[in-house]
Design a protein around this nucleic acid. Structure first.
Length: 152
DNA sequence: AACGTACACTTAT
DNA sequence: ATAAGTGTACGTT
């Protein structure tokens, strides 16, 4: 089993992806790119298409880490929708603060869509830069509206 | 191995 | 406006 790495563009950022088939072991954001390939669906998502990434498996839910229940709950949030830290916490029986902690340590953002987890009164945080979360949420919201308009 | 501190939050004073 | 509750990680003894 060989892990493939590569990066693609997302706005001003580069998304580095380490993967093997449907299994994604790591995703991180950087100002610079690296050589190598990225799965088609992830490339399309980064290009702004409304792609459902739930067909991928994150190492974060395959492993049995203390946060895995939280990651599983977060992965169920569909494209264009959001949940609050508190809602996720209630689902898995922990506290909102812990959910934030799990998001901060998410090894595979996008696959585990931590950008769809927002604060009860605000957007919440995101690393390395909140602008990525803002971009993704704005884009998903826009695409969701577009889908609604064209599907009725 | 224990201890203190730092968090991508929320809810109740 | 402030404080308490919460679970994990990480650095310092």
């Amino acid at each position: 089993m060989e892990t493939i790495s590569g990066s693609c563009r997302l706005g001003l950022w580069h998304v580095h992806v380490y993967w093997n088939g449907d299994l994604v072991s790591r995703i991180r954001f950087s100002r610079t790119g690296i050589d190598g390939s990225v799965p088609l669906l992830i490339r399309q998502y980064c290009a702004g298409k409304p792609v459902d990434l739930r067909s991928f498996v994150s190492i974060a839910i395959q492993d049995n880490t203390p946060y895995s229940r939280i990651y599983r709950a977060v992965q169920k949030i569909p494209y264009g929708k959001t949940a609050t830290y508190g809602e996720i916490a209630r689902q898995v029986g922990t506290s909102p603060r812990v959910v934030g902690q799990a998001m901060a340590r998410n090894p595979t953002p996008l696959i585990i869509p931590c950008h769809r987890v927002v604060a009860a009164n605000g957007i919440g945080g995101f690393s390395p830069d909140i602008e990525i979360k803002e971009l993704l949420l704005a884009r998903e919201k826009r695409n969701r509206r577009k889908n609604r308009d064209t599907s009725a």
